[in-house]
Amino acid sequence: MSHGNMNLTLKVWKQKNKDTKGRFETYDAKGISPDMSFLEMFDVVNEQLISSGKEPIAFDHDCREGICGMCSMYINGRPHGPKDGITTCQLHMRSFKNGDTIVVEPWRSAAFPVIKDLAVDRSSFDRIMSAGGFVSVNTGNAKDANNILIPKDDADTAFDAAACIGCGACVAACKNSSAMLFVSAKVSQLSLLPQGKIEKQDRVLNMVKQMDEEGFGNCTNTGACEAECPKSISLENIARMNREYLGASFTQNKA
């Protein structure tokens, strides 16, 4: 394995906060190992910036193993970079060539205001979840799991939808900044299971209402979200949400 033999040029978005205008700044990333993850490369660059008395680049990260959904970099025109089915933290520098210029931008959406540099505020997703992304259950002892039988296919489909980590790559990839893939995954994972079916009408109506209020765009079925999703969430979920929303709008027994 080779160490520290890559020299790269980074063009990174710098923005003080959501109220100021941002701009690109160019950084030299020297002595980068191809075995580093993309975030580790940023750590090295930030160390160099700090030791030379400059301000480091702010970016979001947490678990660094592809499950927390925090890292959110739009790299060379693609969310989470050039590889499919992974998050930014799972992207390695061997995916780039020595001497490359890499353009790194934050997720760009009216519903994701920039907090600082590459970190964006995704609390709009949290508000969509609070609007209906839950199951109301009484507290108490956990029931025996086999009390409610669930068809294997339903369990699998629900699990595939539940793989969504809420990173927002779907919104970032969509030319319309639509959050349909995220919301539909959350609607699906609950409505496919018996415990979630009970509230499915209220859930889909409330979550879609909140999604629209947050200022996300409208889906035009380009499929960019599905292609860029680090968890490969399927477009089938969007169709499921569309028909659940249609059904709930017209049959909900409330005035």
Partner: peptide, 12 residues
């Protein structure tokens, strides 16, 4: 609406 949903365009 879609234009409004992304006020700052991407560079790349």
């Amino acid at each position: 609406e879609n234009r409004k949903a992304r006020p700052t365009p991407y560079e790349v």
